[in-house]
Structure formats: C-alpha cells, structure tokens
C-alpha cells in the first residue's frame, strides 16, 4: 500500500507497484486527460508533473511515486487559466488535440524553471513531445507568448 497526491487529493494504491502511473491515472482514477501514445517515453503524450518536474507517466512505475505529488492536465487549472493554456487557446494551437495535454504539461514545466526560454531552449525542451498533426510552429509561438504574457 502506498499513498500519493494527485491534483491535490490524497490517493492510496495497493496494486502492482510496477504498473505505470499512466494506467493508474487513466484506468483507476479516470483521469483520461493524460494520453497514451507510445508507452516507451518516445512521444510525450503522457507527460505529467511529479513534484513539479515533467515526467513520462508511461514509464514511471507506481512504486516510484509513493509519497510524491502528481499533477495532471486536469490539475494544471480547471478553467484553462494557466498562462500556457491561455496562450494555446489564443493561438488555436491544437488540431486533433490528442498530444496537447502532454505538450502543455511539458511547456508549463519548462516555463516554471526558465521564464524566458530562447527558441532553441523551447525546441530542446519540447523535442520529446510528438505532434503528428504538426502543430509545432504554433507550439513554439505559444510557449513564447506564455513566457512574455503576450
């Protein structure tokens, strides 16, 4: 039995500690905003924050998040008011939208540690997040807009 905090709520888990956080969030808690895209840390669709850092939930075992604080897209803000979400909305970033929760969580983690990232730093931070629809141009612009509050 282990406990963790998910979006500010205390949760306990007594299943297989090797189960990835992704499936716990999606199947057990019903937090489906965090997406499955590859299962091997190649696409970033499953990105969540663990103690504020962007991590890939698909390769993060439950045993590794005991007593830690997990934030998912549902917990970033409930109303889209996080600066990254606001920028995403203003620039109409999503196409199909499936990758976007992961993109937003990754961008939010970047801006939490680097308030004024250069384009190269944005690309470096976001290179693990695939968008098959190809929204990269707007993602770059939205991260910049979120950084400057534009």
């Amino acid at each position: 039995m282990l406990t963790l905090s998910v979006n500010g709520q205390r949760q306990s888990f007594d299943g297989d500690p090797s189960m990835p956080l992704l499936w716990y969030l999606r199947d057990e808690l019903g937090l489906t905003g965090t997406k499955f895209g590859c299962g091997i840390a190649e696409c970033g669709a499953c990105t969540v924050h663990v103690d504020g850092d962007a991590v890939r939930a698909c390769i993060t075992p439950m045993g590794g998040v005991a007593d830690r604080t997990v934030t998912t897209i549902e917990g970033l803000s409930t109303d889209g008011s996080h600066p990254v979400q606001k920028a995403w909305y203003a620039l109409n970033v999503p196409q199909c939208g499936y990758c976007q929760a992961g993109q937003i969580m990754q961008a939010a983690a970047l801006l939490a540690t680097n308030k004024t990232p250069s384009e190269a730093q944005i690309h470096e931070a976001m290179a693990g997040n695939i968008c098959r629809c190809g929204c990269y141009q707007r993602i770059t612009a939205a991260v910049k807009a979120a950084a400057t509050g534009a």
Binding site: T78, D79, Y89, G97, A101
Partner: peptide, 21 residues
C-alpha cells in the same frame, strides 16, 4: 470562430476514443 473543442482539449476534458469509460 474558435475550434469548438479547443477549451476542452487544453483542459484535458475532451473525450477521444481511448477515453470512453
């Protein structure tokens, strides 16, 4: 016009096939 699902997508509420429960 804003794409209609935009806000649901960026807040994680949009329901895709994999999200049906």
């Amino acid at each position: 016009i804003k794409p209609v699902d935009q806000m649901d997508i960026i807040t994680g509420k949009a329901v895709y096939g994999i999200d049906a429960r």
